[in-house]
Each structure stands twice: as C-alpha cells, then as structure tokens.
Amino acid sequence: MSVNPYRFLSLAFAVVPLTACTATDGRQTKVIEQVSLPVPGEARAPANEAGWELTWSDEFDAPQIDRTKWGFAVDCWGGGNNERQCYVDDPSNAGIENGALVITARKQTHTGPAFPPHMRASQPDGEGRATKPFTSAKLLTQGKAAWRYGRIEISAKLPQGQGTWPAIWMLPEDNTYGTWAASGEIDILEAVNLGVPCAECPGGRENTILGTLHFGGLWPGNALNSSEMHAPAVLDEQFHTYGIIWSPGVIEWTFDGNVFARKEADAWWSDNADHANAPFDQRFHLILNLAIGGGLPEERGLGGVAETGYPKRMEVDWVRIWQCNPAPSSGQTCASGSGD
C-alpha cells in the first residue's frame, strides 16, 4: 500500500500468477516477468524447513497494544491516493480484544494534520489541517524493529465492503537509495472491496488478494510488479495467514502457508543502485492499516465507497517473524533448502 501507486504511476499493471507482462517505466519498455514460479499451492511451513528461528512476534495477549513494538500514524493525508480516512491514535480505532489486535474504521468526521511528519516541513503552509469523513488506524514498527530478509507472517481477518482497503506491508527503515519508490516497498497483502458482487470471481463475490513490489526511481519515475489471486476462503470470516519468504534476490508470497507468487531480482531494480538485489537488500519495517477509499478500491468493484455497514474491523491474531539461521555445517538456506 503505497504513495500514489495506482492513480498516478507511469507503470501500473496486475499480474495473475504465471503471466508475463510488458510495462513502461517512463524511459523505456521493460519486460517484467515472474520466473521459476513454484507449483501453485506449494506449502512452505517454517516447521518443515530447518533453520528458521523466531526472532520477533506479537501475540496480542496483553490488555493493551505494546508501544515498545508499535507506533501510530497520525494524519489525514490519505496516503497520496485520495483515501478518505484520518489515521488517529485512539483506543476506539485500535485496541486489543480477546487476544487480537483490532483496527476499526469508523464513519465519523475528523480534522487532523494534513500531512505525515516527514512531509510537513516541505509544505508551503507548514503542517496544515485536513478533514476527512472516516477515522481508522495505521500501526507500524518504524524506529522499533526492522528486518532484512526472513519469513514474515500475519494471521488476520479482513473486513468486507465497497471501499475497504486493508493492507499488510513494509517500507524501508532507511531510504538508502532515495525516497519513494527508489528504496522500495513490499506489499505482503492488500485486498479491496471484499465480498461485493464480482462476475469473474469464484462464487460471484470479490475475493482477490494482491502481493506487490514498488521500486525503480523517485516518484513519478517508479514502477510496480503485482500478482493477484482469487482466494474465496478470505470471505469465511476466519483468520488466515498472509506472508512473504524473503531471501537475497527472491521474494515469495504465501496464503495460509502456500506459495501463490514468486518474484526474482530480474523483476525489480532501483535507479540509484548498481547491484542486482537493490532495493530489496535493506531493512524494512512492518505496517498494518485499514484504509477507506482511494484510487484502488474506488476504481474497482462497484465504484466509490459504500458508507453503510460501519464500523469495519480488521483483526490481527498474531505477527511472527523468523530469521534464517541454519546449522553452519548444513550448507543449506531456509528459503531454498539447498546451498547458495
């Protein structure tokens, strides 16, 4: 889930797994292709792969959100996507219930900072104020925890309805290669408009999940590579596990432990780096949020935002992050099961 990813990019496309696409990054035409895709449904469980070490987690068992692990975004910016919510730090929008983190989007008018902190100094009117018709929450580990490579999994239950946009994603802890998107973005899970009528979806209701990389140059010279999959189970109002397995030059996306997309280093680049794995060779922090409206959901499904059925809830049962630490004598890596 990114700044200006769908409405304004010079490169914007969605790839169904096993499909190659041609795209333009504003300078030349490039073929971005998923190669060496796994067999659909290939299971990747940490317990079945030697060397994974659980190094960070939040089971949300405490009575309150752990502020040593999570910070809050507080702004009405709309993510650069014309989203309709203000992000607030309020117990009515984010809290712990029955051992799960609950992020709640509410239909209520709110006025707050027009821009996030890192943008305010560059605005002609300084901080500025904005008013939006919804409130919600965005939690992030920025400044508290960040990772380079590993297995990141989140057990979550997603909201439904036209205009809902839950996201689990990562941004660079340090903009080593420049500001967005030269230093990259990893979208572990996005879903929009779940449950609304969808003629091409199995069962006739929207059930698409997306896994996306953003990279290339500074906006607007940025690019993306996105894979989509129909996952009817997301509509069963149960917890499902969304994850990535991230190793040097390879990122795989998983749903309930099964791989549904794989991207290798020749599918991304950074204009400000001359080595193959950039920008996805640096530390990234984790973000959990529920947006309402914006370019992606409002241009899909039934269009716009349905303002009924609020509040909407995104629930997170746990977050777990493993690092690969195989036995030195094994000659194996957790991600591939074989030597580098």
Rank of each mutant, 00 (worst) to 15 (best):
N272Y: 05
I244L: 00
M314V: 02
M229Q: 11
Y87I: 07
S57G: 09
N48S: 15
Q160T: 11
A23F: 03
V192S: 03
G126A: 08
T141W: 04
G294W: 00
K312G: 03
L235P: 14
G204T: 09
A47C: 04
L290I: 11
A156N: 04
I321R: 05
R84C: 08
R320Y: 07
S336T: 15
N277C: 08
D317H: 01
R106T: 08
K138V: 11
P117H: 04
A167M: 00
E83S: 06
P91H: 10
N48A: 15
S122R: 14
T55P: 09
P159W: 05
L296P: 00
G78D: 10
T333H: 06
A73Q: 15
A191I: 07
N82I: 09
N258I: 04
N98D: 15
P5Q: 15
M229R: 10
A335E: 08
I65N: 00
W322H: 14
E307T: 13
L139F: 04
G309N: 05
G249S: 13
R300G: 10
L290P: 08
H110R: 13
K312I: 03
L288T: 02
P116N: 10
L11H: 15
T19G: 13
T22V: 11
S329Q: 12
S270N: 05
E315R: 13
V305C: 00
S330L: 08
G221F: 01
A273Q: 03
D274R: 12
P116D: 07
Q34D: 13
G309Q: 05
A278E: 10
C76N: 12
P166G: 06
L218P: 05
F239L: 01
G303W: 00
P5E: 14
G339T: 00
K263Q: 14
K69E: 08
Y242M: 06
G112L: 00
I287K: 01
I186W: 00
Y149M: 03
C201E: 09
K132H: 07
A291V: 09
P5W: 09
E298G: 07
G294T: 03
R320D: 09
A12F: 05
L101G: 04
E298C: 10
Q142M: 14
R313Y: 01
S270M: 04
R106E: 10
I32Q: 06
G301R: 03
L210A: 05
V234D: 02
P328Q: 10
L194S: 05
L235G: 14
P248G: 01
G79S: 15
E206H: 03
E127M: 08
H275I: 09
A100E: 12
L171I: 12
Q323Y: 07
Y310R: 04
Y149S: 02
A12G: 10
A62W: 02
K312L: 03
A146Q: 11
N48C: 11
V192D: 03
S329V: 08
I168C: 03
L54A: 12
P91F: 08
T208G: 02
F280Y: 06
N82M: 10
A291R: 06
L218V: 11
E206T: 04
K144L: 15
A231V: 15
P5S: 13
